[in-house]
Measured scan of single mutants.
Amino acid sequence: MPVRRGHVAPQNTFLDTIIRKFEGQSRKFIIANARVENCAVIYCNDGFCELCGYSRAEVMQRPCTCDFLHGPRTQRRAAAQIAQALLGAEERKVEIAFYRKDGSCFLCLVDVVPVKNEDGAVIMFILNFEVVMEKDMVGSPAHDTNHRGPPTSWLAPGRAKTFRLKLPALLALTARESSVRSGGAGGAGAPGAVVVDVDLTPAAPSSESLALDEVTAMDNHVAGLGPAEERRALVGPGSPPRSAPGQLPSPRAHSLNPDASGSSCSLARTRSRESCASVRRASSADDIEAMRAGVLPPPPRHASTGAMHPLRSGLLNSTSDSDLVRYRTISKIPQITLNFVDLKGDPFLASPTSDREIIAPKIKERTHNVTEKVTQVLSLGADVLPEYKLQAPRIHRWTILHYSPFKAVWDWLILLLVIYTAVFTPYSAAFLLKETEEGPPATECGYACQPLAVVDLIVDIMFIVDILINFRTTYVNANEEVVSHPGRIAVHYFKGWFLIDMVAAIPFDLLI
């Protein structure tokens, strides 16, 4: 008679799926529990143990900040960024110097990925580790590398530091407007667009060049630039800015003055950032001319202004700041037409079709709590990747769950009947059967004279019903998954307890 339990259901295979997918890609990662103190490590794979030199037993239950890997060259700011990422709910990448158990130093890129439950609360953290440099290539500990984003994938490793954006290309926007319009339909740009040429040739750093990471940081200074100062900065030398009595002219307006920039070969870094931020506020060169004239017309309804409409929906549905990093990277690809469009465009503009998908598509409701890094690593669709929660398995109709209350009560009843059979069957065979043979035949009273025979008949009927119930009862397979398919249940029961239950259900007393 089957006594099969499996009270692990309803099970959740999400954690096993993450481990299996990460292991298949030869990654070095740990999984931490966000619900406990210090976000203790609950799993670390073999790749991480080989990377740091510690065994799994030495890593388990330690804080996922990996303070046991810190050393003299470990930056405090990087460690603080990892700790801050564990307090938030967004994906974050941090470069930090770690030390192995043998004392060797290596520069590592740590990717902190939160995993949320159905309520939107962070319950786990996945920390992925990628070695960037070994100890002989690690720089000085005073050099802070965590304020910069990861290198873009479309640049060669040897040319990542030679990417320079020439400031004269930004200063000569109005001069290039006529050349853009003359391109017409034969050019790649839309009317009114501004073409910015980027020099990728390796050259020595000069005062006129600005690194790509500095251009990325310009967006942080746009908020500090007032509207009046932006307007004066875009007017140009024809209309000098008016300053109040006793007030000095704005240095932001002076930063885009061609006369002032041409007199000296070098520009201050602050002026460069502010000038680029001011130019980015204009949607095209037409807006710059309109600002000089004193009238700013409404933005025209053409394809170039609607190019950012799908980007707005993608940004609203993005799951991490990696989408913004990807957008900034692609927006700086050289030799393309940049349409400086305000994100607050007309909502009635139709979304044009684009061959290049900048932001990841909208994630469906079932995966809105899973970050983009987890979705990318697992390579699963929205119909396959579940949320991290207890999910009731989908069972067929008329199927009994093996952990249901009805099955528990039924098993206790069958257990009592088995005990009765084990006690009274030998007793009936030894004593009652002998008395029946010696006594007179009682054929007239039937079952009324033999109450134990009636009980034995009921017990046999219950055993037959138990066999039928076992054909529709779920079970737990070797992978700790609840199986509810009727065919698989029948095959599993035939290979197991079916023969024993059938022999126990045969009414031998009635056959004798």
Rank of each mutant, 00 (worst) to 15 (best):
I333T: 14
D144N: 15
G149I: 06
P202Q: 06
P249F: 07
R312N: 11
C64P: 14
G345C: 05
A285V: 11
Q25A: 11
I336H: 14
H221C: 13
D287F: 07
P2G: 07
D259F: 15
P205I: 06
N317A: 10
R77D: 05
F129K: 01
V279F: 13
E91G: 09
P300E: 13
V341L: 06
E118G: 10
G246T: 14
S272E: 14
L107M: 07
E134N: 13
G149S: 07
N38F: 04
F125V: 06
E372T: 10
Y327S: 12
L170C: 15
P237G: 13
P386H: 03
V131C: 12
P249M: 11
A282Q: 15
R176A: 05
G186E: 12
S264K: 08
C52V: 13
G139M: 14
S318L: 12
V325L: 14
F68T: 01
V325S: 12
E177T: 07
K373R: 10
Q335L: 04
V222M: 08
H143Y: 14
F106M: 08
A175T: 08
S313C: 14
V377N: 07
G294Y: 12
R328T: 12
C108D: 01
S182M: 07
L210H: 05
M124Y: 10
L155R: 12
L155Y: 06
G381H: 15
R76G: 13
L349T: 12
S278N: 08
P205E: 15
F125Y: 15
I96L: 04
C276H: 14
S283C: 07
A260N: 12
T337M: 14
E357D: 10
V115H: 13
D346Q: 11
V377L: 14
F68H: 01
G294K: 12
P249V: 15
V112M: 06
P2Y: 15
S266Y: 07
G236E: 13
S255I: 05
S278F: 08
E23H: 03
L212H: 08
R56K: 06
T152C: 06
P241A: 13
S266W: 04
A83W: 14
S320L: 07
C52R: 01
V110P: 01
E23R: 01
L51M: 14
V112N: 01
A79R: 10
M133C: 15
V59W: 01
D321L: 05
D355E: 10
D355I: 12
T353L: 11
S322F: 12
I288L: 09
P237N: 05
R181S: 08
A172N: 08
S331Y: 03
P151E: 06
S179P: 08
A268E: 07
P299L: 03
T319P: 14
I18R: 01
K364F: 06
S272R: 08
A89I: 08
G381I: 03
N257R: 06
L109T: 08
S272N: 07
A260V: 12
P205L: 06
G139P: 09
A303P: 07
F14L: 07
G184L: 07
I126A: 11
P300I: 14
A204E: 03
V112R: 01
M124K: 04
L171K: 15
N317P: 06
P151S: 09
K344G: 14
G88E: 13
V370P: 07
R159T: 11
A203C: 10
S239D: 14
